[in-house]
Computed example of a mutant assay.
Amino acid sequence: MAFQFLAYAAENITGTPFPELVISQLIKPLNLTRTYLTNPGSAFPNSVIIDGWDLDFGDEAPMGGYAMASLGRPWEILRRDVPVSPGSRTTRVVDLYTRQGGGTAYTSLIALSPDYGVGLSLLTAGPVPEDFHVIKKSWSDAFLPALEEASREQASVNFVGKYVLSDNSTATVGLLSDEPGLFLSEMHSENTDFLALIGTVLTALSGKAPEKGFGAFLYPTGLVEKNRVAFRAIYSAPGKTVLEDCGSWAEEDRIRYGGYPGDLFIFHLGENGMATGLEVPVADRTMLRA
């Protein structure tokens, strides 16, 4: 519908019907002698019916090959279980926002992945070929795991490492082979073991002591401000997924000190996108990447 609204806007601004604008601003200047917005009549007498040139989409013509794909609800959400690392049996859910449709002999597919910031667009003319379905399957079965692996490699370069401060504050951020997200395995604020303190508080709140290897899984929130990107933590031990202990989700903002949530971590980024520091507001510390 966005293209349809743009056509209305263009008509309102210029005072010229959209079909005439296409002819005067696009078709004639580029000498596109075999391009038409509406039914070309006898221009292609042998393919008018087969290819759907006899159809007139009216006000929906600006949407072109996506005209039929725009009908119904905006998105069809496809969920895929993607291995968190090559060969791992642990998976995480990745959402794909997709839409597929077509008009007679023309088919289109668009798929967007917010997790990876990439998209797929397929356009075909004529009967839908088998390759169309092969490409769709390859996108979810092969390309998504490859993107996950590339994302881990990028996260390793951009975030993994030791963060330190002159007052003996330290933090260690890494990646675990069978777990999603970054993992904070150690943090000291001056001489205080931050994770041990968090574990003590959670034990008092839940009556359940942290398991061996207790740390913080860091997940991006999507909140970015200039050179700062925010992550939220799920405090848990490796191998103990959130689904096995749904109470983990209730811990968000559960611990607060000085007006700050205990699960907020902010990475400071350099011009190259790599982390230069780690800010922990609840501890009032910003450590520099070593």
Rank of each mutant, 00 (worst) to 15 (best):
P17E: 08
P19H: 05
S24D: 15
Q25H: 13
N31L: 09
L37M: 10
P40E: 04
S42Y: 08
S42W: 08
D51Q: 12
D54L: 10
F57Y: 10
G65K: 10
A69R: 04
R73N: 03
W75Y: 14
E76K: 13
R79M: 03
V82E: 00
L96A: 02
L96E: 02
G101N: 11
G103A: 15
S108K: 02
S108Q: 03
V128S: 09
F132L: 07
F132W: 12
V134S: 11
V134F: 10
K136I: 07
K136M: 11
F143S: 05
L144Q: 01
L147Q: 10
E149N: 07
R152Y: 04
V160I: 14
G161R: 10
G161E: 03
K162I: 05
Y163W: 01
T170G: 03
A171T: 06
L175P: 03
L175W: 01
L176G: 14
G181M: 02
S185C: 10
S189R: 14
T192R: 15
F194C: 01
T203Y: 01
S206P: 06
G207E: 09
K208F: 06
A209K: 15
A216G: 13
A216K: 09
F217R: 14
F217E: 05
F231S: 02
Y235E: 01
D245K: 15
C246G: 07
A250F: 07
D253I: 13
D253P: 00
P261D: 04
F267Y: 06
H268G: 13
L269M: 04
E271Q: 14
N272R: 05
L278K: 04
P281D: 03
A283Q: 12
D284P: 00
T286N: 06
L288G: 08
